[in-house]
Design a binder for these strands. Structure first.
Length: 286
DNA sequence: CCACAGGACGGCT
DNA sequence: AGCCGTCCTGTG
């Protein structure tokens, strides 16, 4: 059924939320709004003045779905104020990406999406995920258009490596195939992850094929696991951390260990959010 | 045609 | 433990 839900949040900018690199299934419409799939629902998010308007073909209560997914019960103003005190670089990056909220994305979907993200760029990642959903997910209609749910582990259980390859996954085909099997046979039990401390949850995720340190940290931060005490280090984060704080002539000579240690001491339990502001700022203004 | 961009992984020291 | 070549596809 088609539902609407309207709020006036202090912190909520469409471009900041959907373009900061945390998600791959949201597409911008001609009117500036975004449409995407959350679980079994299709949602369109628009902003008019201070109003954020959610409309969707929803499998449940739209208010519950959006409150959870968009992390609406967290006080980002307070978090921004705390982070802004750390230094002026962080303050500037927060001013740039002031409308960011970290999404609560389905854990399985986040795992598969970020395995696909390895050694890959955003347009291609989005294309692969779209083809995966169209081929193996369920169709939902909204505003006269077809959308597709992200396929479940069960829906991928009989897909061969060759079929994955034909969707454009490249060398990631085996990783998707193996990880699907490992999750289905509970070699890694996703249900148990949410109760584990961050370091142990990371160890579990690292057992999955195609999940290394960077992907594991993205999963911990951008999924319903919602851990802010991780600091995913990719080329852009390395670049910005070196430029601002480490100042090595060759950024490639800076070890991940050194960056990680700096993030721990400087940003502490809020390092995941700090990473998002710094990453988005550096990427968009590069 | 080539250079480059983007992480995991396995083999090597 | 750290270093490095390979995996694949799209872009300039």
């Amino acid at each position: 059924m088609i539902d609407t839900y309207i709020i006036k949040p202090d912190i909520f900018e469409l471009d900041d939320i959907f373009e900061c690199g945390q998600c791959f299934r949201w597409n911008k419409e001609d009117d500036g709004s975004y449409t995407g799939v959350i679980g079994d629902s299709v949602i369109n998010v628009a902003k008019k003045g201070n109003d954020v308007i959610f409309k969707g073909n929803c499998s449940g209560d739209i208010k519950t779905i959006c409150t959870d997914y968009f992390d609406l019960n967290r006080d980002y103003t307070k978090l921004q104020n705390e982070l802004s005190k750390i230094d002026n670089y962080l303050k500037e990056s927060i001013e740039y990406g002031k409308g960011i909220r970290i999404l609560n994305q389905n854990l399985w979907e986040t795992i598969i999406s970020f395995i696909i993200s390895a050694n890959n760029n955003i347009p291609r990642i989005k294309g692969i995920i779209e083809r995966l959903s169209k081929t193996y997910g369920k169709r939902i209609e909204f505003n006269g258009k077809n959308y597709y749910t992200f396929p479940t582990a069960d829906e991928l259980s009989n897909v061969s490596i060759e079929e994955f390859r034909s969707l454009g996954l490249g060398f990631r085909d085996v990783r998707l195939y193996e990880t699907t099997k490992m999750i289905l046979n509970k070699e890694v039990d996703l249900e148990k992850l949410k109760d584990l401390p961050t370091n142990l949850a990371r160890e579990e995720l690292l057992k999955l094929s195609g999940v290394g340190p960077k992907v594991a940290d993205c999963i911990l931060l951008f999924s319903t696991l919602k851990r802010f005490d991780v600091f995913p280090i990719d080329v852009w984060v390395r670049r910005v951390m070196n430029e601002l704080y480490i100042k090595n002539e060759d950024e490639n000579k800076v070890s991940k260990k050194e960056i990680q240690k700096l993030a721990d001491t400087k940003f502490g339990s809020m390092q995941g959010l700090a990473q998002q502001y710094l990453f988005y700022w550096k990427r968009e203004t590069a």
